[in-house]
């Protein structure tokens, strides 16, 4: 091994005056690029705006119909978030219950899978019979569609405790409850928060499906009636609003996840 002369001056790298962080700006540029492609594509092909409106036409529609769009967006956001919150509480509860013991896990899991396989749109008519059309079926559909991933993730987190950890604690006289509180629940939190990102996206699917089929308000309903009036730009305006709401809620969940379970992300990097 050669020894380095420690007194040798190290040349300072030249610092550029302004550094553009391309990675941070990439989402913006790519989104703009998508809209530009869309605009150019529609203009060149000459598609009528009743088939595929240009983005400028869609933005025009957003400005033109801002009041109903805003009202319906808020309604959809409200039903989605409410259904999602119920799903969080119920999912966490059921997940903990299922993950508690191997027998419960084995017994309930197939039922849950079967339930999850039912397309939730098929449940909307039943919900309408029970609760009438409007907000309640939308909230419930959002709930039903989004609670499954939460349950599965929490239960999996509990069911996959390392046997060594369990042995160490059981040898000390730990009860099932101790192991759950000290290890199981903290351990399943990254799974839980991770599942929220999936769940919130699904919740939008649920509420919009229900609004489209059985409601007098919400973006789903607005788009359905715009479609029957051949107001295609308004349909696209609704889609755009849904995309925006979805991105915002997803980002919020990702942020919550990072805040709550930073240790889980850093630990995977350290190993």
């Amino acid at each position: 091994m050669t020894t380095l002369d420690e007194t040798a001056p190290i040349a300072a790298p030249p610092r550029p005056a302004v550094r553009i962080n391309w990675v941070r700006l990439a989402p913006l540029f790519y989104t703009i690029g998508l809209f530009v492609l869309w605009e150019v594509g529609v203009r060149i092909s000459g598609l009528p705006h009743t088939i595929l409106p240009t983005p400028t036409r869609v933005f025009e529609a957003i400005v033109q119909y801002w009041s109903p769009i805003w009202k319906n967006s808020m309604q959809t956001l409200y039903t989605t978030v409410l259904g999602f919150l119920i799903a969080v509480v119920a999912g966490l509860g059921i997940g903990l219950f299922i993950g508690w013991s191997k027998t419960i896990y084995a017994g309930l899991y197939p039922i849950m899978v079967g339930f999850n396989a039912i397309p939730k749109v098929a449940l909307v008519p039943i919900l309408v019979i029970w609760f009438g059309i409007g907000t309640v079926p939308a909230v419930l559909t959002a709930f039903l569609i989004s609670f499954f991933p939460i349950v599965v993730n929490v239960a999996t987190g509990l069911a996959t405790i390392e046997p060594e950890t369990e042995d160490v604690l059981r040898a000390l006289g730990a009860k099932k409850m101790d192991i759950m509180l000290k290890v199981g629940i903290p351990r399943s939190m990254p799974y839980f928060f991770g599942s929220l990102k999936v769940a919130i996206t699904l919740a939008f699917v649920g509420s919009v499906v229900s609004e489209t089929v059985a409601s007098n308000s919400g973006l789903g309903n607005m788009m359905a009636s715009a479609q029957s009036n051949f107001n295609v730009p308004l349909v696209f305006a609704g889609l755009l609003m849904l995309a925006v709401e979805g991105i915002v809620m997803y980002a919020l969940m990702a942020w919550v996840e990072k805040r709550m379970t930073g240790w889980a992300h850093r630990s995977t990097m350290a190993n």
């Binding site: 390392e162 060594e164 040898a171 000390l172 006289g173 000290k182 903290p186 630990s267």
Partner: peptide
């Protein structure tokens, strides 16, 4: 419960600091 155990896999709980990990048995015994 008069034993302490250690395995090949250290099984430290990643959400606790080292000190909190060491104090864990005291929360059980």
């Amino acid at each position: 419960s008069i034993v302490g155990m250690a395995f090949q896999n250290p099984t430290m709980l990643p959400w606790r600091t080292t000190l909190e990990n060491i104090l864990l048995p005291l929360e059980i015994v």
